[in-house]
Computed example of a mutant assay.
Amino acid sequence: MERTTTTAADFLDRALLEEAAKKSGLLWVQPAGQPQARALWHAWHDGAVVVVGDGAEQPLHGLTAGSTAAVTVRSKDKWGRLTGWTARVEELPAGGEAWQGAVEELKGKRLNAPDTDTIGERWARECRVLRLVPAGPLTEQPGAMPDGSLAEAPMPTPATTREPIPAGLPRLLFKKRR
């Protein structure tokens, strides 16, 4: 019988991963074979990140059951990269016990839902609930971060920066009231 040993470093890595995922409201997920990571809102439940998407929710392009994805979590305080890992993607069947638990966690994280009373029913009909299970050691952590910014170039857009404010506007806004 083969026995795996857990070191103190493994325990600390797992604690960092879990705490970062619990505290951050947003993470970046790059499905294997995709050129770009996508920001997803999520919840931490039962040892994994859970996300809901497709339908009227966030798009989950490229995330399929059995595939892998690179997950990056930012620091809630500094907003910079804090940790990253490779995740194994699992799809939860709608209505199952694991699905119910994940949906309960996700309901609390969903902001401005148009149908808070029946959101679980809508998710069962239209959406997929995925678990991103950590698989392997951390790929990024404090003291072992990649070089460079890793920032993506902004998408081309016809939008422009607004014009300078009129010179008299600050006087109107900040004049003392009498």
Rank of each mutant, 00 (worst) to 15 (best):
P35K: 11
P35Y: 12
P35H: 07
Q36N: 10
Q36P: 00
A37G: 13
A37S: 10
R38P: 00
R38W: 08
R38I: 12
R38A: 15
A39D: 14
L40E: 05
W41H: 14
W41D: 14
W41Y: 14
H42T: 05
A43P: 01
W44C: 06
H45C: 15
D46G: 11
D46K: 03
G47C: 11
V49D: 04
V49L: 10
V49W: 04
V49P: 04
V49N: 06
V50Y: 09
V50S: 01
V50N: 06
V52E: 14
V52F: 09
V52A: 15
G53W: 07
G53Q: 07
D54K: 06
D54V: 03
D54S: 12
G55V: 02
A56S: 13
A56T: 05
A56F: 10
E57T: 05
Q58E: 08
Q58T: 13
P59V: 11
L60H: 03
H61K: 11
G62Y: 01
G62A: 12
G62E: 06
L63T: 12
L63Q: 10
L63F: 12
L63I: 06
A65K: 08
A65H: 14
A65Y: 09
A65T: 14
G66S: 11
T68I: 00
T68M: 03
T68K: 11
T68C: 06
A69M: 02
A69E: 08
A69C: 03
A69G: 04
V71C: 09
T72R: 15
T72G: 12
V73D: 01
V73S: 08
R74H: 03
R74S: 15
S75F: 08
S75T: 03
K76T: 11
D77K: 10
D77G: 08
K78D: 13
K78H: 14
W79V: 07
W79R: 13
L82A: 03
L82S: 02
L82E: 13
G84R: 05
G84E: 09
W85H: 15
T86G: 03
A87C: 05
R88I: 03
R88W: 10
V89F: 05
V89A: 11
E90I: 07
E91P: 01
E91V: 14
E91W: 04
L92W: 08
L92F: 04
L92I: 05
L92P: 02
A94Q: 06
G95H: 01
G95Q: 07
G95I: 01
G96K: 02
E97W: 00
A98L: 10
Q100V: 07
G101A: 15
G101W: 08
A102C: 08
V103W: 04
V103T: 10
V103P: 00
E104C: 00
E104R: 13
E104N: 09
E104S: 14
L106G: 07
K107I: 10
K107F: 02
K107L: 04
K107D: 10
G108Y: 04
K109I: 01
R110T: 15
L111Y: 09
L111C: 04
L111V: 11
N112V: 01
N112D: 15
N112H: 12
A113F: 04
A113I: 00
